[in-house]
Every structure is written in structure tokens, then in C-alpha cells.
Amino acid sequence: MPEPRVSPAGDGAVAATGAGGAMDLATSEGAARERGPEGPPVPRGTAPGDAGPGGGGPVGRPRGLWADAWRDLRRDPVFVVSALVIVFLVVIAVRPSLIAGGNPLSCDLGRAQEGARPGHPFGFTAQGCDVYTRTVYGARTSVVVGVLASLGVALIGSVLGGLAGFFGGFWDAALSRVTDIFFGIPVVLGGLVLLSVVTSSTVWPVIGFMVLLTWPQLSRIARGSVLSVKQNDFVQAARALGASSTRLLLRHILPNAVAPVIVVATIALSTFIALEATLSYLGVGLKPPAVSWGIDISNASPYIRNSPHMLLWPAGALAVTVLAFIMLGDVVRDALDPKLR
């Protein structure tokens, strides 16, 4: 007879199925555990069953998304180079006097448009100011505007977008329409209109304007990211085990949804630096006596044929800075995007 033994239902039809049969063989729980395919408890790194299906990760004990990303980044030459440039920029933004002893606002009309000479490696502007000093001090504006505007949009965008994505319904629909309206406003034109009435020479109106016009982009990213994370079983599982909405959002959804926001905010940082220069060039961004690469490029452009050095140094500094942040954004995206792994 094929019936191996009497199962609780006394039924061969059951015992003959795979699971039923296997259960019969593994009557003792202890025995089943010891023979488990999960492998021996030690050593930890070599348990044969450990590379579970979908376990992904390369060998060498991956430690979750952030640690993984950091490990990848450290080895990436593009990251190392861009990070060094950015660290340098941040340092001179904080303490420009470290490498530039002069005062960017003290100018000598008698030396207007003069070329490079000892002590003044980049020459002088049309107003007789030292180009080197002004270029170094200009980094501060660019870094401050870029970083603060990025933080601002990341914060506002992810809070509004995240809440809309999580709760859905009316506020989600309302937010989507509002973002549509903002997408319809051309940034430079909006800047010309809005900032032309501002007389302050600080960076705040410029930062405020940038945040106002670009948060919808981040909120859209955050909303989409939260929506897709929300679909995951672990969110429902956490809810089934009694987690509150706040806990779901902060502990389960946010850490899983924040990566795309960081990536887009990092890439946007370079856009903000370029945008500040553009607005300043057009005369509506920072206003003298503020020191900005955009202002210097604007002032130098009429003299480009006679004294190109006045334009090339601040323009070159701007290009290098923007490039460094773009490269950083790129490698951060690669490191945080699980699909590219």
C-alpha cells in the first residue's frame, strides 16, 4: 500500500501531497530545526542558506541601504574628486581669508582692467578690484545659496509631498493642482518679475524665491516615493501589528522613501548655484555690494575682448563648482538607486 502512515486526517490524499508528506517526516520540531536548510548557527558569514531568494547583496555582509551606499561611494573616484572640490569650496566659503588676504570691496580705479601681476594672480576688474579675492569670496554666496535652497526645497517638498502621498484624498488632489500651477511658471521670467522689486542685497530673497518656485518638483518626487513605499507589505504588516500613523510615517516609510529626495536635492543644488549666477547676471539676483560670480561675470562681459581674464576666472569657478555638485548628485543617485545595483 502506498499509504505510509496514518496522518491525523487518516487520509492518503493528504499525506501524498508534498507538504503533508514532509510534515510526516519531520514530526519532531527539534529535529526539523536541527536539519533546517538555514545552516549551522556559526560562523555567521557562511551559513549556506543565508543568500535567501532576493537577498541580493554582494558577498561580504552588506549592512543595509545607507552603509551599502557609503561603501560604494568611497570607492568611486568621481565621488572622491567631487567631494574634495566641494570640501574645498565649503572651507573657503566659511573662511575665505585662509587663501585670500585682501578685501573684495577695496578697489583702486587706477588699476582697472590690469592683467595678472605678483600678489594679484588673476588681475583686476573694471573697477580696479582684485579678481582673485572676489572669486574666492564669491564661493561663499554660491555655496550658501545652493545649500540653503536645496535644504529648503527638500524639507518643504518632502513634508508636503510625503503627507499628501501618505494620506491621499482631498489634500493630495489639491497639492497636485498647486504643483501644476507652479510648473507653469518659467523660473527666470518669474525671477525677473518677482525679484526686481527687492532692494535687499542679502542672499535671502534669492533663496526664498528659488524655494518658492522649485519645491513642487521635490514634493512630486517625495509623493511618488511615499506612494510606492506605502504599497509595500511591511507597511501593512506594521499596521497589522499596531503601529500608529506617525510611527508608520517616521519609522517605516520615511527611511525607505527619502533616498530619491536626497538624490534630486543634490542634483538641484548645482542648478540653484547656476540660477543664482544667472539671476545676478541679469541684475535681479544679488545686488552689489554683495560679491557673487554672477555679478562679476555680468560686469566683465562688456570687456571680454580687451580683458578676458575678468570674465574667465569667475566663470571658470562657477563651472567647476556646478560640475562638482552635478557629479556628486550623479554618484549619490547611483549609490542609492537599488535598481542600478
Binding site: D233, F234, A237, R251, H252, P255, N256
Partner: peptide
């Protein structure tokens, strides 16, 4: 969670990856 709890089909997706 305290008085009634649920076990899900696919534990990989039912556990928070981070």
C-alpha cells in the same frame, strides 16, 4: 498586535528592509 496579530505571506516584503 497586542490581542490579535497577523502573519504575512512573504516575510521579505513584510519586514522593513532598513
Amino acid at each position: 498586535g497586542a490581542e490579535m496579530a497577523m502573519i504575512f505571506q512573504d516575510a521579505l516584503s513584510a519586514l522593513n528592509p532598513v
